[in-house]
Amino acid sequence: MIKKYAVMIVICGCLALAASASMAEEPLQALLFPDRIGIGTFYNGSVVSLNGSLPADCEIVVRVTGSDMHLKMKKKGKVLGLLWLNRDTVNFDAVPEAFLLYTSGKFDTLLDGRQKQTPVWQLGLTALEDRIVVTPVSPERSTLIQDLLKLKENEGFYAVNTTGIHYTPVSGDQKKFDVTLGIPPKLPPGAYRVEAYAVRHGDIVSTWQHPLTVKLESFPKVLSSLAFNRSALYGILATLVAVIAGLFIGVFFGGGKGGH
C-alpha cells in the first residue's frame, strides 16, 4: 500500500515539474521565409524574412550563423624595423563561417547592466573572442581575434544590425515581430542556421532555430561544376573562348591594338 502511494507521489512530482518547465519556456513562435536561397546568374545577395510573436515585455535577438571553420592566416610584422610584411602563420579554429546579428537596439542594452559571461552576452559578436582558438598560443591573442573579427566585418561575413526589426503590439501579453535578414552576396553556398532568442532583463526566456540553405543553381552551378570537376577542360575552354572573342573583336573593331 505504502509502495503504491510512493509511486503516485513520484508520478505527480514528475507531472508538476513538467508543467513548471513548460511555463518557464515562454512561447516564441517564428516563421522563416524563404529558408532556401538559390544563387542564380543575376544573384546579388538576398533578403529573408523572419516573423512571429513573443512575450510583449521581451526583445528579439536574431543570429544567422554558419558552421565553424579553420583558418590559416599570415600576420604582418616589421622587417628590418621598417617594412610591414607577412611574417608569422597564425591558425584560428572554431571561427563561424558567418555571424549576422540582429537586435532592436544596441546589444549592450540587452544585457541590462549585467556582466560578461551571461547567456545573453554569449549571443554577441564579442563573445566570439572567448570561443575562437588561436594557435600557436600568443600573448597577442586578443588583438589577433579582434583583427580577425574586423576583417570578417569588412568582408561582410560578420555584422551587427540594429535596424530591421519591427514590432507590432497585439492584444494580450504577446507582440508580433518582423525581421528583415540581409544575406550578403559573398556568403558562400552551404548550410546556415537562423536562431531567434526572446530576451528579458538580460536573460534568455525562449529560443527558436531553423536551417537556412544557400545553394548554386542554373548557370553558376554549371560553371562551378565544370571549373571544379573538369578543370583541365574548363581551362582549355576558357582559353579558346578568349581567343575566339579576341578574334571576333579584332574583326569587329578592325584590329585594335588590344590591351595586355
Partner: peptide, 17 residues
Amino acid sequence: SNQIVGASTSGTIAHFR
C-alpha cells in the same frame, strides 16, 4: 591572364598584319 589571352590575340593579329 584569361582576359589578356583575348586582348593579345586581337592585338597580335592586328600588329602582325
